[in-house]
Every structure is written in C-alpha cells, then in structure tokens.
Amino acid sequence: MSSAAAIAAETRIGLVQLRVSDLERSIRFYCEIVGLQLIDRQEGTAALGVPDASQPLLQLREIPGAMPRPRRSGAGLYHFALLVPDRKSLGLSLRHLQGTGIHIGHSDHLVSEALYIADPDNNGIEIYRDRPRSSWKWDEQGHVQMGLDPIDQEGLLAEAGDSPWNGLPAGTTVGHIHLHVTELPTTEHFYIDVLGFDIVASMRDSALFISAGGYHHHIGLNIWAGIGAPLTPANAPGLDYYQIVLPSETAQMAVFARLQAASVPLRTQGGTLITHDPSGIEVHFVV
C-alpha cells in the first residue's frame, strides 16, 4: 500500500464500550479480578481505567436481565486486549488471576505474551505485554511472525516476585481489539482499502491481523463464529462500539473523506466520526 493511502502511523485503539447484564457484578469483576479502577459511575453505566490516565479504557452499559451468550455465537467482540507496560506487570496479573480461581488461557505469540479470561457475560479479555519491537521478525510479504506457544508461567511469576499486586498499572492501554466478523472479503476491503490499515498477518482463510505504523496488530478479524454470523443483538451482552484514535484532525478528516468516497454511511457526534463496519460493528473515530 502506498503511504498516501495508509492510515496515520500513530493510529491506535481507544475506549471499548461493552454491554453487560449486571453492572454491579461487572464493576466488581473488572476492579477485583482484572484490576481496573472505577473512574465514573452514572445511571446504568460505568467508566473504568488505570492510574494517571486522562481517559477511561473501558465503558460498561447495563442491559438489565440480558442473557449472556455463548462464546463465538455472533459477529462482535472476540476479545479486547489490555497492554501492560512490562513483563513484571504481566507476572503480577498472572499471580493475581491464579489466586482468584478464574479460568486462564495463555499464549506466547513471539511478539507478545498473553493471558486470556472472560467476564461474567462471556466478553473476552486479553491481558498482555509486548516484547521489544526490535525482536519481532517479519517475512518477505511484510507479515510479522506470531506463534501460539505456551507461555513461560514460572518465568513470569519469578518476574513478579513477592511484589504486591495493586491492579493494572499506570501506562496500561487498550493495545488491540479482536473481532468476530461476518465474512473476510468485505471486511478486508473496509479496513484495508477504505480505512488504510495494513495486513500484518493472516491465518489461512479464517483470520486477518491488521495494524497502523508497523505494530503487530491493532485489530484482529476472524470468521470463527461462522461465515454469515449475524451481529450479536443489541439486547444481549457484547460490544457496543470501539474507538480508533487518530493523531490529528487532519488524519480524522482523511478517514472521513475515504469513507465518503466509498459511500460508507457515517455520522458525526461532537468531534466523533461514527460508522459501522460490514458486519455492523460500530466504530468511533476520535482525535
């Protein structure tokens, strides 16, 4: 892709808003298990983040009485990923999660080490740390090499030592988001040809990993809920929307122009540009 067509290199993922069935229970889970802090609480919603952050990372919206859906049951969230600043922080999270008795998945992706859990509504969560970019390996196609090895749990716990766990540390961000989509060709057209992300990895014909500025991935896109999977309904727990954060108003205007040129329906709300991807997933572009 020519640099003229690429989305701004400093683009990243911002706030994720989730629907939950029981706000009180979810606040407890995200504070006590995950380690986020409650920043703001309104009627039916809660914002959570980490110390010293100017913006929340997660917003919860209650859908009272909503029935949790099984994993992989529709287009929408597969997981959102909280990126901690160093390996010791990940070790502290691992030790804490082990103490809670929650089910923990884990994987060494070569570029990163990751822990996987699910909230009480089956919304997927990854907590991970990146290895230094200088250690990432790329092939001739410009694809980054990622693996699915077990993580070195003993090494992570040794990094944590006997330091206290005080929740997720300052500097934690939403590093990426991974979505179930309805099908890949139209999804690839939207995110690559229209928005200007780069493909950085793929898994046969079932998943794409895309990014801005040479990151290992800002967005994962898979068809593991089935080709043609309908969007998770708005009255069930799941993803309301996620933010793509652009570095400048110029970068936001470039996205606006590309969406218009591709005849993608969009609207603005304050300084936010709102659209939907081909699966119906709501995307907010903010500066």
Rank of each mutant, 00 (worst) to 15 (best):
P150T: 08
T100F: 09
V144P: 04
E183G: 12
I219M: 14
S135Y: 07
D277I: 02
D40L: 14
P68D: 09
W224S: 10
R131H: 14
R204H: 12
N122Q: 15
S202T: 13
P150S: 06
D40G: 11
D240N: 13
A75S: 15
E62W: 01
G175N: 04
L48H: 11
L195S: 00
L58Q: 06
G196T: 05
A5E: 13
M253D: 14
T232H: 06
I227V: 15
A236C: 14
Y116A: 03
V283H: 06
M203H: 14
W165I: 00
A46F: 09
R69E: 07
L15T: 11
S2E: 09
P64M: 03
H96Q: 13
L168V: 05
R129G: 12
I125H: 01
G44L: 09
L168T: 01
T182W: 05
G213W: 05
S135I: 12
G49F: 07
D205K: 11
D240R: 06
G74F: 11
S89K: 00
S26A: 14
E159R: 08
A261G: 10
A212R: 02
M253K: 11
A229S: 15
S89I: 02
L77M: 11
A118C: 10
V287D: 02
Q17E: 15
D198L: 00
G171S: 08
L92G: 05
Q145L: 13
G44R: 12
I117R: 11
I199L: 12
I104M: 09
I104Y: 09
R71S: 12
Q153R: 15
H178I: 06
E282I: 04
P150Y: 04
S26I: 02
V34K: 00
T250V: 12
D130H: 14
G105S: 03
E282G: 05
E154I: 09
S3N: 03
L15P: 01
G238R: 11
I210D: 03
V245N: 03
Q243P: 00
G142R: 10
L97T: 07
L18M: 10
H176E: 08
D149Y: 13
L179Y: 04
I210T: 02
G101L: 12
L208T: 04
I210Q: 04
